[in-house]
Design a protein around this nucleic acid. Structure first.
Lengths: 106, 106
DNA sequence: TCCATCTGTCAGCCTTTTCTTACGGGTGCT
DNA sequence: AGCACCCGTAAGAAAAGGCTGACAGATGGA
């Protein structure tokens, strides 16, 4: 895990609304509009947060057609597990250097 | 751990410069000016980041007098270990609710 | 046709965070 | 006195992030 990936993860989780989103999604998959209603968020705002969560790999969305023919985007939580300590940070920084070296060789 | 505390921790770690600060401090305690030089940061900027890290409890500073009588502020890393997964998030959200109930009773 | 529901995006505002420049103070050595 | 080093803070610019409101397209049912 590079520091960039680690930062994306930390930034994704590190926000009140996104914490709430994760909390709600832990109860099961929901489609976007319903999720927005439950959390009291505007849909555009929710989209923004979901994009961030998706980029960090914490959440996945699938577009489905409901029985009455309407398009529904269902969001579900991706299991994640990161141990947050000094070693993790050092490992990320080290991996950055290794990538940099690999790039300069190429 | 409340969500507020969790967020403070995530925000504190979740920044490129602060990741580098942690990485450097992992090598041992350093005084502020020296740390700034090593990382190529301006001292005021470093102060800002250290303040954030300190509030989250990741770092501790002690003002000491060096042998030649100059004031030196040494910074050292505080060990930390947080497991970052869905359960941690749920636990934080749950603790928020418990606190809220406790407050409303009082 | 009109209404309710869903999807998605864009422009712009406001707040927070990050960063620089410029100060103030102190010590000891030449 | 002047210089090198240390401490600390304040003001303001710059950038990033969060949020709202308006819009466009699609479906199904009254």
């Amino acid at each position: 895990m590079t520091s960039e990936e680690l930062l994306a993860l930390l930034a994704a989780i590190g926000h009140t609304q996104r914490l709430r989103i994760i909390g709600e999604l832990a109860r099961g998959r929901v489609h976007v509009s319903e999720l927005a209603r439950r959390l009291g968020l505007s849909r555009p705002l929710l989209y923004m947060h979901l994009e961030r969560l998706e980029k960090a790999g914490l959440v996945a969305g699938t577009l489905e057609l409901s029985s009455d023919g309407k398009a529904m985007k269902y969001i579900e939580l991706t299991p994640f597990e990161v141990r947050l300590n000094v070693d993790t940070v050092l490992a990320a920084l080290r991996e950055d250097e290794e990538r940099a070296e690999a790039d300069s060789e190429a």
